[in-house]
Design a protein around this nucleic acid. Sequence first.
DNA 1: CTGAAAGCGCTTACAG
DNA 2: CTGAAAGCGCTTACAG
Lengths: 346, 346
Amino acid sequence: MTASIGDVAARAGVSVATVSRALRGLPNVAPSTRARVLAAASDLQYVVDPHASRLAAGKTRTMGMIVPLFTQWFFTQVVSGAEAVLAASGYDVLLYNVGSPTSRERVLTDLSFRKRVDGVIVIDLPLTEEQERRLERLDLPVVLVGIPSVRFPNVTIDNLMAARTATRHLVNLGHEHIGLISGMPDDPLRFRAPLERRTGYRQVLMEAGLEVRDELDVPGNFSMRGGAEAMAQLLGVEHPPSAVFAESDEMAIGALKTVRDAGLRVPDDVSIVGFDDHEVAEYVGLTTVSQPVSDQGEVAAGLLLDRVQADQEASPPSVVLPTKLVVRTTTGPRRGARSGQLTRFG
Amino acid sequence: MTASIGDVAARAGVSVATVSRALRGLPNVAPSTRARVLAAASDLQYVVDPHASRLAAGKTRTMGMIVPLFTQWFFTQVVSGAEAVLAASGYDVLLYNVGSPTSRERVLTDLSFRKRVDGVIVIDLPLTEEQERRLERLDLPVVLVGIPSVRFPNVTIDNLMAARTATRHLVNLGHEHIGLISGMPDDPLRFRAPLERRTGYRQVLMEAGLEVRDELDVPGNFSMRGGAEAMAQLLGVEHPPSAVFAESDEMAIGALKTVRDAGLRVPDDVSIVGFDDHEVAEYVGLTTVSQPVSDQGEVAAGLLLDRVQADQEASPPSVVLPTKLVVRTTTGPRRGARSGQLTRFG
DNA sequence: CTGAAAGCGCTTACAG
DNA sequence: CTGAAAGCGCTTACAG
């Protein structure tokens, strides 16, 4: 029904080998022959069967991307950045959406993708020592996003410093009771980002001589709803915080709603700083730590292509992308702060 | 290096044909044999080579999704809904991101995906008569999202009615000058949704005896930034609108910012209604027309699986999913509206 | 510059 | 219930 390489060969009056070479633009094909083959292929609307081609050549022209939660804004942006770069080099991308712990386990342990991709990008998934070793033995190019590693090339941001900056901003505004809306309650997988951000938050409080109060550290599950609920909890404690650092913009946006629904004003009554610089942050005036998102995907894709093309076993590059504080309108000085306590912040 | 079916056969002491049958759970394999094969496969960490398998079997176990703009919220949700259903049935999904007109043209004309997928979902891309016919001749199952068709199964919403409802809501609140922030300025491809929504808007204005003013119809490119710019333009006309219908929530969110930055209040000075019920809409209090988004992907995937499994040539089903108006806090009565003119809307 | 042929790793009638 | 063998549609040394 649909034309195969043999049909093209017959119509062009050459062998299938020549068709294969002509179509792929290999050298050593006479210009006139190539023209005849191209014409025949076009007449027959021939497209190569990728499965046959990949089986014969041993290359898949496909890259895998393993992501924890495909619908979150951060992940869509990273995937999109990587996809653009990979598509430009002629690669398809196969998405492995490993939302559940079991699918995560299965993909990272079975490594069942190994015969169907030429390389793989893993986003944000913490790997056990064992999983890292198995991945390495595959000897398939692997690039990590958001996960530092000595084994694989990786692109990350400095979560600790970024969280310190966000918290310091609140301290500089005179806030003394500062809440934290963190990631998942107790994900057994221990994603790094939320932990590092919490550490940054605590460091700054301690350095400023402020008390670290456990009841001001509430999980928000990286969702708007979770952020809203976490904020409700924070408003209910004795001596509620006058400022909150949310570990993602989605959670910050949820928190914003809770504060306003409670009849309080932002930033007069409560200051909120987020993390990411989500597309919507600018539009709701959210102060946040901006990280380059689709850039992380693009850089990772570039590193992956480097690995595939030249298999230099140089030590794997680690790229750390910069973050910066973007002050908008959801943060302000603590009401009634003694002015002498207020440090300028830029 | 990595085990093939022959290795498993050797270790289990059977032929490759038996390994193939045992691993795929086909009948007519002695239980003891099957157990031996399974053990051998597990010992060797064998996974089947999908390219070889697909070449031999003629099935790809992969579905294609062709989407115009992968990073937009609406598309990520549809893709995610479809992906969940397809993955549950053991299908991989291959993403064709056809952002540019040229890539759109190429994919829809070359149909180069035809040998690598068992079926395809096309989202929102208007097809020419010629493209529809070529797609049909492929005799590959095709399901459309957002595109009515007599040829292919499709899932849509009633954009016209939904837009009428949104506009009627504003009319009922007493507004007489109602602006429209529409989709792309003049996309040569003529996506249907923006056109149908505009038609609904105009119908209601005319039915209400209100003037349809061209200068109140401004394109916003389906982005927050575009919506913000469109709103700025609307604020600059003579007799600016007291209410605006934005054809997407992203544009509505942009518009909201412009209104507030101008020192005006929502909804006291300007009412805004959006379209989609974007994840963030609830959190910014946006009145909008809610449409089931990931449902559209799920339903489409279901229709596609139906087609692949039973190739009943019954007339292709058309599923129309419901929309509903969600009134929140960005719409309110026109200031100074004569109360007699105000119709109840709740 | 071109072709004949082996081979990629599976699946699937066909025999037995 | 099991195996030998053909075949899926390509690519790639190897000859010439």
